[in-house]
Design a protein around this nucleic acid. Structure first.
Lengths: 340, 340
DNA sequence: CTGTTAGCGCATTCAG
DNA sequence: CTGAATGCGCTAACAG
């Protein structure tokens, strides 16, 4: 029952030694075809399962990779994990997950747990709360490769995979321009978070590139929530010269905007264009459906794993500068911004 | 750098033995306060991290639990994993995840990988494809506790946590009756999947309990998809005596129904009531918002872990019948079915 | 209270 | 080609 059979058991059964069994099972070169076959036969018969804990202890490689995310409940991270696990599994790695719930304390605990487990590498999307990076450096210095995804820190010399927020915002804004909207507003997120700042810059960059004067009254900075989107629209509509389109920093805020505009009986996209960012699931099903930018979540997971694997396979001596992979967001233009 | 410090290193530093260090670090009873302090000091200074692989090998407990899900991309499973990981982490377990992508072959590989890793227990939501349960029985017989969640098999004498689909369907149907709808239809899912059958039975049960004659033309059986919902509505509206409400087996199908009804300019909920099942994220944001039943995903994860932990802590001799936990779905009545 | 011995399961020496 | 010996890092039993 609960007794797991070991190579010693097999050896006894065959009046040979564990070493021979080990060699046979690992298809080692110097072993006679006959013993190999006999060993495999017995192994199968006894239902032998290699104890990967023992192998790990001996080899020093756990074939485990640790993934730290804010929450598995958040769609985005679920998708990234999907990408990570698919590739990892294919390459013989098992995946450990740990949720921080946005707490730096938990994040630290996660890193500790992973280091104790001797994971071969760590993938992390930082908690919002985190402004102190000791625990990451500690991991890296202990020789465990780390790769950030989505939420990264540029200054840390740690590899990362992120979305090009500037480019996405630029594309979204330019799309609105091409659709013929004249006064394009932006609902911005908290500016101390870099990615929101990048999106604001992308918006400004697109306006400038198209010789459109920037009107600061058309930039509303708030939280990211449905409520914030509604408030932003109320603000915009109260302006003497209101906008006729908005690039919203994020889909939920865009949804708020959509709702507020509908309450005001403003036709979307005819009178007012709306585009968000993130490609949340609901966007396809709102009325009108919401234009947005897809963040390539699965690809991000795969890229992060690939980067990590490179580091794992690299001789630790071959220390080179941390790679940064920047993924292009994919435009998803739906009804809310498409006039033609 | 990459060299991890061991208790032997600490022992050398202090001219003592690994055993003493081990005892000190584990706050063992018979150890002098002085040595304990000295050991801890050195451990901290050398940045010692216990090697949990070694501990696992020695103790026979990995403090790992394995979770097998169809896909992390699916919201539902992300939420359940959230529940599992939260509790597991709190209880000192690390969580391994493995995706099957609905393939039995992968499911088998996942079980193998987990058994090799000597996980202390396994949580699994079966792949749709799976109709052969050897790999589960093998795991159980090897002494590794298993608990099913959401997708379970009743005949296997393996513990499980599932949603009460019958009850949910019953509640949904009764809700429509109470809202004054007279001819209530049902869009059913493939009947060879038990949970869909249970929902059909719940629908029928509620009608019977309220002395409403069952009209088989009001039951449309199809796939679960937006398209199926639309087709169902087209079918219903072509009837000589069409229904005025529908309980849809699942939210996406309900969404299709919503869309088709809107195309026909039928007012929801005034002329036609709609309720789904699953509480997908988009339902809150459709126009009108979609009534549905919440599946208590996080709670399901927590319950599954709790059940597993019970089994892990149970003396293997105390073999008792597999527990089945049945969770009540929570009604979420929104605009699409609320007339008053 | 501390040191010695031993072994968890495996894979790699080094001898034959 | 196979056997014997050794150690990965840790902890428990058994002395002292």
């Amino acid at each position: 029952m609960a007794t797991n059979v070991t190579i010693t058991d097999i050896a006894k059964e065959l009046n040979t030694t564990p070493a021979t069994v080990s060699r046979a099972l690992n298809n080692h070169s110097s072993i006679s075809e006959e013993t190999r076959a006999r060993v495999w036969e017995v192994a199968k018969r006894l239902n032998y399962r290699p104890n990967s804990i023992a192998t790990s202890l001996r080899s020093g490689k756990s074939h485990l990779i640790g993934v730290i995310i804010p929450s598995a409940k958040i769609n985005f991270f679920g998708s990234v994990v999907h990408g990570i696990e698919s590739l990892a599994s294919e390459h013989g790695y098992n995946v450990l997950i740990y949720q921080t719930n946005e707490s730096r304390e938990h994040e630290k605990k996660g890193i500790q747990a992973f280091l104790n487990a001797r994971v071969d590498g760590i993938l992390v999307s930082m908690a919002k709360e985190t402004h102190d990076y000791k625990h990451f450096l500690e991991a890296r210095d202990s020789g465990t490769p780390i790769v950030f995804f989505d939420r990264a820190n540029e200054d840390l010399d740690i590899a990362s995979v992120v979305i090009d927020d500037y480019k996405g915002a630029y594309m979204a804004t330019e799309h609105l321009i091409q659709q013929g909207y004249k006064r394009i507003a932006h609902i911005a997120g908290p500016q101390h978070i870099r990615l929101f700042n990048n999106r604001l810059r992308g918006y400004l960059g697109a306006l400038q590139a198209n010789n459109i004067t920037i009107d600061s009254s058309l930039i509303y900075t708030g939280n990211i929530s449905i409520e914030a989107g509604k408030t932003a629209i109320e603000h915009f509509l109260s302006l003497p010269n209101p906008p006729d389109a908005v690039f919203s920093v994020e889909d939920f805020t865009a949804l708020g905007a959509l709702k507020a505009l509908k309450e005001h009986q403003i036709l979307i996209p005819e009178q007012f264009g709306v585009i968000g960012f993130a490609n949340e699931e609901f966007g396809e099903h709102t009325t009108p459906s919401l234009s947005t930018l897809d963040q390539q979540t699965v690809l991000m997971g795969e890229a992060a794993f690939t980067l990590l694997q490179e580091q794992i396979n690299m001789k630790t001596s071959t220390q080179m500068k941390a790679k940064k992979v920047v993924l292009d967001p994919i435009p998803v233009y739906r009804q809310s911004s498409t006039r033609h």
